[in-house]
Computed example of a mutant assay.
Amino acid sequence: MGAGEIRTLAARAGIGPGTTVLDLCCGVAGPGRLITAELGCTYLGIDASASALHLARERAAGLSCRFEAARLPPVPRGQFDVVLLLETMLAFPDKDALLRGIAAALRPGGRFAFTVEEGEPLTGAERAAMPDADTVWLVPLGELEGALERAGFEVRWIEDWTQAHRLTADALTAAYGADAPAIATAVGMRAVEELVAAHRLWSSWLSAGRVRKYAVVAERVA
């Protein structure tokens, strides 16, 4: 996500001074650090990767950010104003269980702000072509809206970000290809080849309309 997209989503979610934010699957917490620095929220980032959290803590020095290591599900319980799930809804096969957990972490009237890849589930051939297909669980938009409603949410804002994310996938494909030798020294050439192949598939699917990318803010009403 670009900084402009992060700011747009944060504004739609009502993040500001004193807002309590739970960021699920935060990684190195680039979005979290941006909104904490600019908007003055109180931030807790959760991720399963110890190395990602180590970098997040280093880069968040001086900010009101906390980080905890945890694998999802379950979602940590609490009474947060906003829960973020950016670029990782795709990785959860059971959307209903995930959304119930997120609803339980929000106070009544709290907002769930997320991005999601929308489309029919992958076919057998598509799963065979996609590296790490066990983390790719597409969901049709109507099915997602039904799951949100069952979990006690009402959608307050939704915007199609397909074009912007197709351009990002194209740019990343080119960058990974250009830097393949350097990246391979750290992770191996096979990992680089899979990274490039996955981004090429995403670019193709986004271009053809096989997948669409949405940003969503839903409010907990029940």
Rank of each mutant, 00 (worst) to 15 (best):
A37G: 07
S64R: 15
A61Y: 11
I35Q: 00
L98K: 12
A197M: 09
G109W: 13
G177L: 05
E145F: 11
A3E: 04
A105S: 14
L98H: 12
D179E: 15
A147H: 08
A52I: 03
D47S: 09
T19H: 06
L195T: 14
G16A: 15
A215G: 11
I35N: 00
G45I: 08
T19W: 12
A197K: 12
R12I: 09
A147I: 04
A91Y: 14
A133V: 02
V116M: 01
F92L: 01
A164S: 14
L9Q: 10
L24S: 05
R77A: 14
A215S: 10
A129Q: 09
G45H: 05
A97T: 12
V155H: 01
F92K: 00
R220D: 10
A125C: 05
C65E: 04
L148I: 01
A104C: 09
L172H: 07
M189R: 13
M1L: 11
I46P: 00
I6L: 09
V28H: 01
P181I: 12
S207R: 15
M130K: 12
A48N: 07
V192I: 06
M130N: 11
H54E: 15
R190A: 11
D23Y: 02
S204R: 11
R166E: 15
F67Q: 03
A56R: 01
V136P: 00
A91G: 04
A215N: 03
T168Y: 13
S207W: 05
C65R: 14
R200G: 10
R127D: 00
P140G: 05
V21D: 06
A105P: 06
T19M: 07
V192A: 07
D81L: 05
R12D: 07
A52N: 07
P17V: 10
E117D: 14
R57D: 07
G188N: 08
M89A: 11
A191M: 02
T185K: 13
V82L: 02
V217D: 01
D132T: 05
D47E: 10
A169G: 01
A11P: 01
R77T: 14
V217P: 05
I15E: 00
W137K: 02
R77E: 14
C26I: 03
T20L: 10
P181V: 06
E117Q: 13
A70H: 08
I183Q: 03
V187L: 12
F112L: 06
T168M: 09
A222T: 05
P121W: 07
R59E: 12
E58D: 11
P74E: 04
